[in-house]
Design a protein around this nucleic acid. Sequence first.
DNA 1: AGACGATGCGGAC
DNA 2: TCCGCCTCGTCTT
Length: 262
Amino acid sequence: MPEGHTIHRRARDHRAWFAGQPASSCSPQGRFGDADALDGLELTDVEAFGKHLLYRFEGDLTVHVHLGLFGRFRTYRGVGPPPRGQVRWRIANESRTVDLSGPTACERLDPPGERALLARLGPDPLREPARSTAPESLWRALQRRRTPIAAALLDQALIAGLGNVYRAELLHRAQIDPYLPANQLPRPQLDAIWSDAQALLAIGVRLDRIVAVDSPSPSKLRRAERLSVYRRSTCLRCDTPVSRANLSGRTLYWCSTCQPAR
DNA sequence: AGACGATGCGGAC
DNA sequence: TCCGCCTCGTCTT
């Protein structure tokens, strides 16, 4: 579920449903101890930064949510049913109920904590204006790295919001060997990845799912037609068996024909 | 019914 | 580099 597109979509939805009015708040599971202190406060805004969500409440209170690998939201219209499973945080008004379960983080964040969080995130393609060039800071950071470009793309301090699916699909679309050292990636290739990331993430937010192939009607694509290499047995474009490897604990997928080593 | 792996990340070693 | 988190869809038995 959660790469940057999911987080931005949740921010947009939760803002539309809850912002500008009081919301009830509780922690059915009990592990979000501050939930009760927020009960009845007005939710003023919801923001997304990379894979992080910030919920703003009246009185300058901020809640930080990070879904991690397992976290998910369940949404109900109107008054929700009894919590299903372990619900860390339930937020609701008369029209919607949202249950958060399994997050890596669900916590009050004070201003220094928020500054520290945002300081360790690189630029988020979804927060930057659409551009044909990558941020200079990203380019300079990559120049200092000899790790594979595939590892760099998952480093949230370099670029915030990409996960394992977008990494695989972006490198495939750019026809780049995932093991190319980051400091050997030519600037035009970085710019191509950046602008492509902006486009794909925006589609992801709109459709609430990752679609990484070009299509006049991306919303109609079947599951097996949306991705070219991620978790596939063969490359969607050329039918070559997809290569897999473990790169610092994550499975890397690529097509050795479309993305040859130089 | 049970095993396994997953779109993530921090901390221990 | 590995483990834990704490959930669920998919696959195997």
